[in-house]
């Protein structure tokens, strides 16, 4: 391929320019305009000046953290034990299968399950606790978001464990480590990159799940995503929406940097 004709990849380059660079530039550009089209820094002043936006951002980050943590707690053991099953690839496929079901359908299912007369409340009544308000609570938002993100956390962790050289586990046992020591000193540190990839795959979308905040959270939880959607499609204040968008992009870059693989040079197996 020394002489690959660049003409063929014209469309690809065009895509990078039009759909990667241009929109990014435009959203930053747009963030400097107010609702009536004047060039201004007012959006940023509003964002950093008023406590509401900052509080909303912190709130959104806090919820994303909770969702990520809950997802991780459920996913790591799943990925770990899944790896020990026979036909593990088939089981993994079954874990991934729900991600092919439209996200909105899954959210919709929870509207039924968590509703006032839903199955969970039936169960709670049955065990004597009595019906609770489940839908449109912060907890329901976190739970449903975690439900949707679980496969995206399991997959990278599963792959990291799958790629782990079994000799490492044997070596650790051979050197006298108990099961728990082997896990905490060898397996977990060596699969941390899978965890990081999973956190990346879960945390960022969790900041922007506006459909869930609307359908499940009952507008009680406002995430960065909800705010952006609100400004773009409801109040039509694109400038403010873009400003929040820029904040979200910055948050994303920070997350990528923190969880990025700082590879040691020439590490084995890479």
């Amino acid at each position: 391929m020394k002489r690959f004709n660049p003409a063929y990849s014209f469309l690809y380059i065009l895509w990078i320019v039009l759909f990667v660079i241009a929109p990014l530039v435009l959203i930053v550009y747009q963030s400097f305009f107010d609702i009536s089209g004047h060039l201004t820094l007012a959006n940023y002043q509003a964002y950093f000046g008023s406590g509401t936006y900052l509080k909303m951002t912190l709130n959104s980050i806090w919820y994303a953290l909770l969702i990520t943590l809950l997802t991780l707690l459920i996913s790591y053991p799943t990925a770990y034990w899944l790896n020990q099953t026979k036909n593990k690839q088939l089981w993994l496929l079954l874990i991934i299968l729900p991600t092919w079901i439209n996200l909105l359908l899954k959210a919709y299912a929870f509207i039924g399950i968590l509703s006032q007369n839903g199955s969970v409340n039936h169960f709670l009544t049955f065990v004597g606790i009595g019906p609770q308000q489940l839908l449109f609570t912060n907890a329901s938002f976190i739970f449903v978001a975690a439900y949707i993100e679980i496969p995206f956390m399991i997959l990278p962790i599963f792959n990291a464990i799958d790629e782990l050289n079994p000799s490492f586990v044997n070596a650790s046992r051979d050197l006298g480590a108990t099961n728990w020591q082997t896990f905490s000193k060898v397996i977990f540190p060596l699969t941390i990159n899978g965890v990081k990839a999973g956190v990346q795959a879960v945390f960022i979308p969790s900041l922007s799940l506006f459909m869930l905040t609307r359908l499940i959270g009952g507008n009680k939880v406002i995430t960065l995503g909800t705010a952006i959607e609100e400004h773009f499609l409801v109040t039509q204040n694109w400038g403010m929406g873009s400003t929040i968008g820029v904040v979200l992009i910055v948050a994303m870059v920070i997350i990528m940097f923190v969880t990025g693989e700082r590879r040691k040079k020439g590490r084995k197996g890479e």
């Binding site: 000799s167 650790s172 051979d174 020591q181 000193k185 060898v186 084995k268």
Partner: peptide, 30 residues
């Protein structure tokens, strides 16, 4: 982990997240 034998593995199985000292010290520190 309770046997008084130790193994040198064919692929060495040196822990990539630990340096030379920590690899050698692994068993003792446990």
């Amino acid at each position: 982990n309770k046997r008084k034998v130790n193994t040198v593995f064919q692929d060495y199985a040196l822990f990539p997240h630990l340096n030379v000292f920590d690899n050698v010290a692994f068993g003792l520190s446990l």
